[in-house]
Amino acid sequence: MKVALFATCLVDLFQSNVGKATVELLEHLGCEVEFPESQVCCGQPAYNSGYLKESKEAMKRMIETFLDAEYIVSPSGSCIAMFREYPHIFKGDPEWEPKAIKVAEKSFELTEFIVDVLKVEDVGAAFDASVTYHTSCHMTRLLGVRKAPMVLLKNVKGLRFTELPGKEQCCGFGGTFSVKMAQISEQMVDEKVCHIEETEAEYLIGADAGCLMNIGGRIQRKGKPIKVLHIAEILNSR
């Protein structure tokens, strides 16, 4: 099965380890992974700030890049949610709407792809530690992916899971919200960090680089001993 990897800009620039783990994990599961070089950003930073025109530039490049892929997979629920929004954004555009639909239909978040498309629930991973998991808002509410990461984590050998109190509450990232409304964002991420501490887990796991950068950055600033990992890194641990 051929998979075109949509790495996301955050992973490309700041979290190459997440990209590597995703590639290795997919290959381990028998996929042939390619990385289309012309990929840019999904357009979300501009789109969510109200810059529709600018964001459409990015979206068109992404549609062209991935149009002929068999499957498009990304280690980010939020960025895939953006892909799935493309048909709505280009609604009524005779050239781009059909292409947007094509791209949206074959786009999958990593855990969703493994469970729903590859039909794998145990990736054969082992990780001997206590963890908790932050369910990102876009992944759960926009994309509707709630079960897949849980199913996969449950089957990781040695992993001890504690549910995060207030797990569906936003961490306060929200893209530009984190800097535009910094004073509010700070309160939100602090509450999230408090909840993570309550679980006494060694690791916080998530499936979205943005949320993890926000929560992880706050944990680091406060000097807390909690480590932060992307779910791809856990599933790629053997």
Binding site: R141, C170, F177
Partner: peptide, 9 residues
């Protein structure tokens, strides 16, 4: 309109 993370809750 900016006092939201667009979390969708």
């Amino acid at each position: 309109p900016y006092a939201s993370t667009l979390c969708g809750a």
